[in-house]
Computed example of a mutant assay.
Amino acid sequence: MALLMMGAYQLDAVEAMIDQQYRQVLRMDLELTFNEPTSMRASGELRHLPGVMAVEGWRRVPVTLIHGHREERLSLLGMAPPPQLRQVLDAEGHPQRLPEAGLMLTRYLADALHARVGDTLEVAVMEGRRQRLQLPLAALVDEPLGMGAYLPQRHLNTLLGEGPSISGAWLLVDDAQREALHEALWTMPGVAAIGRLDDAERGIRDYLDETLLLFALIFVVIASSIAFGVVYNDARITFAERARELATLRVLGYTRVEVARILLGEITLLTLAAIPPGWALGTAFSHLLNRAFSNDMFRIPLVLTPQAFGIAAGGVLVASLLVGIMLVRRLNRLDMVSSLKASG
């Protein structure tokens, strides 16, 4: 039952992870990347394009974060506070404000660097003048995909010694004018790439379907077969031990239904008694699996829904029902004389 619950947990957790990333964190429709850092005036020009409902500029620079002897290479993202189209969330899913001074890191990245809030990190900029900055770690944020480091955009511009500039922009668009907007964007010489969030979501879903979800489905099938095997084996042993008693009851005048009720009652009680500890053990297994699957690409949230508990209990109950039907058929074919002689 614990194995069944662990497999069902993965199915729910993957859906929760994708929902958090592409419904709550990434709320834009398009991500534009420019050929080079561009003046903030580009945001105003984008607002006048067909179908554009909202625009947020961002500045991204490749850096190496160093803390002690540990280092990580990634992109430092500068956003205009408070970000609306690209939010940062805490563990409970609440939007967080960017700190006015200091870095905000995803918790997984901070753990990889062995850094805590208040520690000073060295930031080696990998473009332009290649400055080496000293910045405090001011806040942590929980995100299911990737590793991130964030600063207010103006603060990042100041650290880089440049005026207000952006590396790209996030756009919220009207679906009815999406095609016209794409044509207008591709005619702009400064636009290097256009990323569609629905395409990105489809790509991550396909990847997870081929890896994690396939593993979860196989896991559920194997766990179901184990559940059936355990229940069936226990029932066979019970039937063999009770054959003489069952035959005696039949000789004493008990009907097949009454004898079957006695036999199946024991199996039913054992199955029901196994549900609460099975749930508890399944919760522990899911927590361990959650920690084992955490990596720099994605982190599966610990989401235990009623569906996971229901699948675990239902799988065992169905296995018990099938075994009960098999035992009733076996009981109907019970040779009372042979059973009494063998037991005697």
Rank of each mutant, 00 (worst) to 15 (best):
G146W: 02
G78R: 05
L217R: 15
D296W: 06
P164I: 08
R116K: 15
A280T: 11
L137Q: 08
K341V: 09
R129V: 12
K341P: 08
D199N: 11
R242Q: 05
P152M: 01
E201A: 15
L137G: 09
G148Q: 09
L288C: 06
G253T: 01
L281P: 01
G78Y: 06
F34H: 00
P144W: 10
A110G: 00
G57P: 06
F34Y: 07
T238D: 13
S39C: 12
R23F: 09
A112G: 13
L30C: 03
M79D: 03
L321M: 11
G253A: 00
G229E: 00
L269K: 14
N332I: 02
M79K: 10
L289R: 03
L214N: 15
Q96V: 13
R130V: 14
L214G: 13
D209L: 09
L65N: 06
Y22A: 03
A273N: 03
H48A: 14
A138P: 09
E266Y: 09
L272S: 07
A273F: 11
L217H: 13
G314Y: 02
T64W: 04
R60K: 13
A274I: 01
V221T: 04
E143C: 10
L159Q: 01
F34P: 01
E183L: 15
E72D: 11
R97V: 10
T187N: 13
I194S: 07
R154N: 07
Q134P: 04
G324V: 02
T33S: 14
M40N: 09
D209G: 05
R73W: 06
T120Q: 12
M336P: 03
L103F: 03
H67S: 08
G128E: 03
H94G: 14
S286V: 05
L252V: 04
R178H: 02
P301W: 03
M28K: 14
R291V: 09
L77G: 00
L3G: 11
V55D: 07
G203F: 10
L217D: 04
L30Y: 10
V125Y: 05
H114R: 15
Y232A: 09
A180D: 11
M188L: 11
R130F: 13
G57D: 04
I226D: 04
Q21G: 07
I300G: 00
V117A: 07
V323N: 03
G314V: 08
L288W: 15
G102C: 10
Q134I: 09
E92S: 15
V125P: 02
A200T: 09
P83C: 00
T238A: 15
A240R: 13
A284I: 07
P37E: 06
